[in-house]
Design a protein around this nucleic acid. Structure first.
Lengths: 250, 250
DNA sequence: CGCTAGCTTGATCTCACTCAATAGCAGTGG
DNA sequence: CCACTGCTATTGAGTGAGATCAAGCTAGCG
């Protein structure tokens, strides 16, 4: 099922009927090769894509040619649903690995919106989840040190992959170079390398041949100052991802 | 009119009828004093607030007690419209100055959503504009140097205030301390001070007694690597805000 | 008039960047 | 089969942007 991972294990979930309506609205599936740029910033678009298999990125190009990631996407993410109201994007969308996506035309989304008020709110929720992650990335860049940023990113990725069954909580595949991680965390590839060594030597986690191994989950969460509340996971998944127990913080 | 500044001078705008529907959905107006925290993260909410007068912030609290801004809001911003689908927030909302807000209950928004499909998409658009700004803040923190970050923030603020008639393009009121600006740009108050001096001595802009004076608009835009495309302004306003002329970048 | 919050400047320190060199490893072609 | 190429990872040495610590200054306000 193409929409299988959509909102899976989140606070808000889809009913069987809603899954059906969405599946019926898919106009086609497409494949993209690793490295391809799927949407360019500023280009008018009239489709949105749901990621089914593989990893994708959203990134902005700096005037000096360097790029910086503003989001990374896993199966079940509605990568550019925001293009539906926005009609053009302020960033590029690219394939990190070979990927398979399901295509929704905006005309189809408009029909859904007119007939499924609750489902519309769920889709809106999806785009807001995205914004919540953006906020956490802002926090990460502004407030955390290099090692905390990388640890935080690993915790976030683990949590999100847990939700779709792509992590068992202790290890998961992460096909990113140290350069890529640097573009997420605002660090150079050299410094990412040193930070990863430090995390490894501290017995917290290691990244080798595109696989993350978490050796000390609670230690890592603590080192990362990570709290998965912003991911709006269901309680069980949140607990597995390292949620603080007891009353909400604040 | 309470909704006067909502989507004013943006690529997407509201019809007179839509303005009317929104005005009718306002349940009350409220006042808050400068410094008050209006919504706490993690608290269930069933209203959303449109900022009518004054400035507000959204910020996350770090475990060590320091706070960091993830957004700043001006009149016409629907500060926590995202609470409508999310039902609880992953950050605090606070009043930077004394403010006046219009309150929409989520029940009222639900009624609007059921009867006004196009207006719903406009509201959705609003929350995505917010996300687009988040992305630019990520870019700013990850890719720009201190002086560029501050310049970029000033350009962004100028552009947004231009859109609502609160800047003439050369000067505007900005009731923020250097500490506040530091929390936006990921800098200490001390370093913000040095950077402001540098901008002043370079003849680009100055901030004195809560007022920004732009002396060299195009120089400032250039120094900030600023491009207002992500604000989805209408073409005239974008041009005044320093948009690159000619074909879209990319 | 004294208090307090915010602004300004100097001195020192440190985290992360830059530059540079080496190593490993997959793919490619002779 | 091996040489070659390009990409990624690793480590070292030197540098620099911005943090930290500390002190003095300014202005609004009770």
């Amino acid at each position: 099922m193409l929409t299988e991972n959509l909102l899976r294990n989140r606070a808000t979930q889809l009913s069987a009927e809603e899954h059906g309506a969405l599946e019926a609205a898919v106009s086609e599936t497409r494949l993209w090769r690793a490295g391809q740029v799927v949407v360019r910033q500023g280009t008018p678009v009239n489709i949105s894509t749901l990621l089914v298999e593989g990893f994708m990125t959203r990134h902005v190009d700096a005037p000096d040619g360097r790029r910086h990631l503003v989001a990374i996407h896993f199966p079940g993410d509605f990568v550019d649903l925001h293009a539906y109201p926005l009609k053009q994007l302020d960033h590029d969308v690219g394939a990190l690995t070979d990927v398979k996506v399901a295509v929704f035309t905006h005309a189809a989304l408009e029909r859904l919106q007119e007939h499924h008020s609750v489902l519309t709110r769920r889709l809106w929720f999806l785009t807001l989840l995205d914004a919540a992650m953006h906020r956490q990335w802002i926090y990460r860049l502004a407030s955390l040190k290099a090692i905390e940023r990388v640890a935080h990113f690993i915790c976030e990725t683990n949590a999100r992959l847990l939700a779709i069954g792509a992590s068992d909580g202790n290890s998961f595949a992460l096909p990113m170079t140290q350069e890529d991680i640097g573009q997420v965390c605002g660090l150079t590839n050299v410094h990412v390398n040193r930070v990863l060594r430090e995390l490894r030597e501290a017995g917290l986690c290691q990244l080798r041949s595109s696989t993350v191994q978490i050796m000390d989950a609670s230690g890592l969460v603590k080192r990362a100052l990570f709290d998965p509340a912003y991911l709006y996971l269901n309680p069980e998944t949140a607990a597995r991802a390292g949620a603080r127990t007891g009353v909400p913080h604040g």
